[in-house]
C-alpha cells in the first residue's frame, strides 16, 4: 500500500481551504490563553498545532452544544414546518485516539432505541483525522480501558508524527481513503522519519485498574460511604460532562413566539442540580456526591449492561477542567482497590 505523508503547513493549508468552502464544516485546534480548543473554523482561523491535548473533545463537532430539531410557523391554514439547516460534510482535525474512541460508543447510544438521525447523519458525513499521542500527563489512562495512545478506533485517518514538521498518514477507513485520494496533492510529500521524535507506546501509560472489577463493586455499593468521601468536594457544575467525549445527555427546549417556534436539542448534565429535579420540588439526587455517583456509575456500570463497553475513554479531560479537585482516575482506582479487598 502506498505511504502518505503530510507536512504541518500543508495540513494547515488544506484545512483552511476546506473551511473556506461554505458547503463544509471544519473543526480544528485553536489556542486561547494557555489552552487549545477544538473549534469551528473559517478560512481565517489561526490554527495551533503545538499542543498536548485540547480542553474540549471532538464531541461538539458531531453532537453540537445545541441544535434545532424542529422549526415551525403557524398560519391561518395550519402548522407549517420550516426547513432545518442542512447537515454538511464535516472534517474534524486535532483529536487524539481517546477522542476518536468515543465514536463507536456514542454511535451505539444514538442508534439504540431511537435512531437519532442528526447524530447518525453527521457521523456518516464526518472525516475524523486523529493525532497519535506524543505526550501524556498524570490524568491519561486510555490503556486501562482498552485504548492506546496510537489507537485507530473511531478515526478515519491517524496521523503519526515522523518529523518536527510532519506526519505519516495512516488510512483507517474507506472514508479516510477517499479523503486522501481527493486531496492527494497535500499528501504527496515524502518525509524521511527523523530520529528523536517522541512516540508514545502503550506501556508508557500503564494500566491502572480493572474495569470489570470496578463494575462489580459499583453494582453492590450504591450506598457505600466512599461516594461521599471522594466526591463531596464536587460543586455540581457541568464542566466535566461537557468536555467529556462520551457524556451525551441532552434536554429539549422550546423557543416560541405566537406565530413561530424552534425546538432545540441542548446539552444537559447529570451533575447539574436541576437535572433530576421533579415538578413536585423533590430531587432524587439532591446532593452533589449523589450526582457524581451517577456520572461514574453510568459510565462504569449501567452503560456496560446496555452496550457492553465502559463509557469512558480515559482521556482525563474531566479531571483537568475540575477546579474543585474531583479526579476520575483517583476515584476509579479507589473503587478498584475496594473491590480487590472485597475479593479476598
Amino acid at each position: 500500500m502506498a505511504e502518505y505523508y503530510i507536512t504541518q503547513s500543508k495540513m494547515t493549508a488544506l484545512l483552511k481551504e476546506l473551511a473556506s468552502d461554505s458547503g463544509m464544516e471544519v473543526f480544528g485546534p485553536v489556542k486561547k490563553g494557555n489552552d487549545v480548543f477544538i473549534s469551528k473554523m473559517d478560512g481565517k482561523t489561526e490554527l495551533c498545532l503545538d499542543y498536548f491535548i485540547s480542553v474540549n473533545s471532538i464531541k461538539e463537532a458531531i453532537f453540537p452544544r445545541f441544535e434545532p430539531i424542529l422549526k415551525y410557523k403557524l398560519r391561518s391554514e395550519g402548522v407549517e414546518l420550516a426547513e432545518l439547516p442542512p447537515i454538511k460534510p464535516l472534517v474534524v482535525f486535532g483529536g487524539h485516539p481517546c477522542d476518536a474512541a468515543s465514536i463507536p460508543l456514542m454511535k451505539d447510544l444514538f442508534s439504540w432505541d431511537y435512531k437519532d438521525h442528526f447524530y447518525l447523519q453527521r457521523l456518516e458525513k464526518v472525516v475524523i483525522i486523529t493525532l497519535a499521542c506524543v505526550e501524556k500527563d498524570e490524568n491519561c489512562f486510555c490503556t486501562s480501558l482498552g485504548g492506546s495512545p496510537h489507537g485507530e478506533t473511531g478515526s478515519d485517518i491517524l496521523l503519526e508524527r515522523v518529523s518536527k514538521d510532519g506526519w505519516q498518514a495512516k488510512i483507517v477507513s474507506e472514508k479516510g481513503k477517499k479523503f486522501i485520494e481527493t486531496h492527494l496533492d497535500f499528501f504527496r510529500d515524502t518525509i524521511t522519519p527523523e530520529k528523536g521524535i517522541p512516540k508514545l507506546q502503550d506501556k508508557d501509560i500503564p494500566v491502572m485498574f480493572q474495569s470489570d472489577r470496578v463494575k462489580k463493586w459499583i453494582e453492590k455499593n450504591f450506598d457505600h460511604p466512599l461516594w461521599e468521601e471522594v466526591a463531596s468536594n464536587c460543586w455540581s457544575c457541568a464542566a466535566c460532562t461537557y468536555v467529556c467525549p462520551t457524556c451525551h445527555c441532552f434536554d429539549i427546549t422550546d423557543d416560541a413566539t405566537m406565530w413561530e417556534g424552534v425546538r432545540t436539542k441542548n446539552w444537559d448534565a447529570c451533575t447539574l442540580p436541576f437535572f433530576t429535579k421533579h415538578a413536585s420540588g423533590h430531587n432524587p439526587r439532591s446532593q452533589s456526591y449523589e450526582r457524581y455517583r451517577q456520572r461514574i456509575s453510568h459510565k462504569y456500570s449501567y452503560y456496560i449492561d446496555l452496550f457492553n463497553h465502559v463509557s469512558c475513554t480515559g482521556c482525563g479531560r474531566c479531571s483537568r477542567v475540575c477546579k474543585a479537585g474531583v479526579n476520575i482516575l483517583d476515584i476509579v482506582k479507589r473503587i478498584d482497590e475496594e473491590s480487590k479487598k472485597g475479593e479476598k
Partner: peptide, 25 residues
C-alpha cells in the same frame, strides 16, 4: 466559547439562589 456548564455559578460563593434564573423554564 461559553458552553453553559455553569461552573462560574457553582464556584461562586454569592450565586446561592435555590433556583437560578436559567432554571426557570
Amino acid at each position: 466559547r461559553c458552553i453553559r456548564c455553569y461552573a462560574c455559578r457553582q464556584a461562586c460563593p454569592l450565586c446561592y439562589c435555590e433556583r437560578c434564573i436559567v432554571d426557570f423554564n
